[in-house]
Design a protein around this nucleic acid. Sequence first.
DNA 1: AGTGCTGTGTAGAACGTTCTCCATTGGTAG
DNA 2: CTACCAATGGAGAACGTTCTACACAGCACT
Lengths: 336, 336
Amino acid sequence: MTSRRVTIADVARRAGVSTAAVSKVVRGAYGVSAEMQTKVTQAIDELGYRPHAAARALRGRTYTLGVMLSDTRNPFFPDIIEGVTGRLGDTEYQVLLGPGGIEPKTQARMTDAMIDRSMDGLILISPVMTDAELTAIATAIPVVVVGRHGGAAAYDAVVDDDVMGAGLVVDHLVGLGHTRIAHITHLERARAQGLPHTVRAEGYRQAMRAHGLADDVLATSFTEEGGYEGARELLARDDRPTAIFAGADIAALGVLRAADEAGLSVPEDLSVAGYDNIGIASLKRISLTSVDQDGHVIGATAAQLLVERIEGRSRSVTSSVSPTLIVRGTTGPPRR
Amino acid sequence: MTSRRVTIADVARRAGVSTAAVSKVVRGAYGVSAEMQTKVTQAIDELGYRPHAAARALRGRTYTLGVMLSDTRNPFFPDIIEGVTGRLGDTEYQVLLGPGGIEPKTQARMTDAMIDRSMDGLILISPVMTDAELTAIATAIPVVVVGRHGGAAAYDAVVDDDVMGAGLVVDHLVGLGHTRIAHITHLERARAQGLPHTVRAEGYRQAMRAHGLADDVLATSFTEEGGYEGARELLARDDRPTAIFAGADIAALGVLRAADEAGLSVPEDLSVAGYDNIGIASLKRISLTSVDQDGHVIGATAAQLLVERIEGRSRSVTSSVSPTLIVRGTTGPPRR
DNA sequence: AGTGCTGTGTAGAACGTTCTCCATTGGTAG
DNA sequence: CTACCAATGGAGAACGTTCTACACAGCACT
């Protein structure tokens, strides 16, 4: 039951060398002869030794990276995490996720906890906290922030190019012949700026302007209900739009329901596009045209930047990942 | 930049006592006078001291519980995690999640990593490993296994009562007047037994038998495509079923698509039910009747059992959580 | 006055690593 | 032969806690 852990001292005894020597071999440090190398490695294998992270933490690295998740339900977390672990798969680093909750307070508690557990670095996904708080954390530990536009000097950032993503949708719809294209966005309540939906709406406006078209933004919320309500309002108008671009797929699903109820067929009477390319968007029965963020790349980039930071880079980097448009069945030429 | 961490020694100096005394206060140990208590607490507050988990780990507890996730995409992970963190919210324990991947090898690597980081206990969600491996882990550290039927002596287990869940669906459909009810299950490839789909299929068979009806199980896979293929085969039969019970919601979505394509209206021509009550099942446009596992309760129970284990219980416990049936728009009386 | 509690505080040894010296060896240049 | 250097291995002090053992005081009994 209580089989004591194999320690570095056990290995040293077995190999007939000092613990310092074993430590050197384990860390791949300089000053080890080939003979020593093989002797120690063999002893390690025989005993099944694994370094004790907590003991390591007291001196140097712990080889643990933390990823704080703000909302576990967010549909592209799995992709981001896969990207992170994928990029780190062949390194010695281990990834642990911390469910931070939606509240600033619980998120702070989680980041504190991760720092207390002496992680080597942190990836914060869509953190809900002020820039000052972020900077404070970043002075204690290397940090990469994902999903907030406008990074700061103290930490690195990875963002989806939401302006470009919105542009892709508008270009696509204009290319199909649409001119009355409405956008449904999320109603801003928090004071935080640089949030994705704001940037997406701005990208939509820019793209419409570039095509010489009038923009038409309606703010409800990024929920199925929000999309439904927004679409009902838009479709009740005299010159109703021929296309609706929802800032999030979940809202686009609501738009589809509203179109259904109004007896409009998609895409003949109404084209619908979303953002995020969540899993069900690809189901044949839904087949929603959407912007894909490539969470893999975002996660992999974040991991890459974090490791670089840990290993010494001090200059701050902001990396922008280009989204792609996935055209499916909900968009087509307008009926004329 | 490198503001040294506040340690127990700093607090001791500030309060004019020994580090041992501070430690006692922090841990709420016996043998502390009221005066000492206030003096130390004040010093802690003034300095903003937080215990260093790694240093703690070298001696006793680390107050960290690990949750190994096998498949991050699993739709009810968020609920389970909320249940776990909710139950632990007012304790000193922190929860960290480990993405273990689907491979036995990566899962083993993750559990090792969690043990190396001296976590106090582990919750393993649908682990893919042999009972022997599980037992081996459980001798090194307290373990609660979630989502595998048939626990062992070395660890606790929390399972959804899948037999009951399947029974609820069958009872519901029979109550509506159905007699030809088919079940789509997942094709077994791995050698692991006690997997949810097996148990659900068995529960379906039992319930059908109890009603004196013939069972009809088709094994494809728990994917949208699997549900689609299964339904196509079932609906092509001479005496096609009037109801299909898919062992997972994602498969039920495929069934709905097949019904669509076959020109059958749901629920008039075909009733469809799923299992898991994933998020989109509640969208009005889908409105899928499904069995809800109540991940909250499962997570909370697992957390509870784990803490009990850590704090001394040695007798093994298996807890079964009752699912509920959520009746929505895809089930109704058969057209006759 | 001596004995034995009880209640409170402290000293100091762990815990398993890392890492900075320092010692030793052997080789090479002068 | 001496002096110096490079390469290698080891001693031992950290790191920040916990916890056992003990010291001391005060008190109640003999």
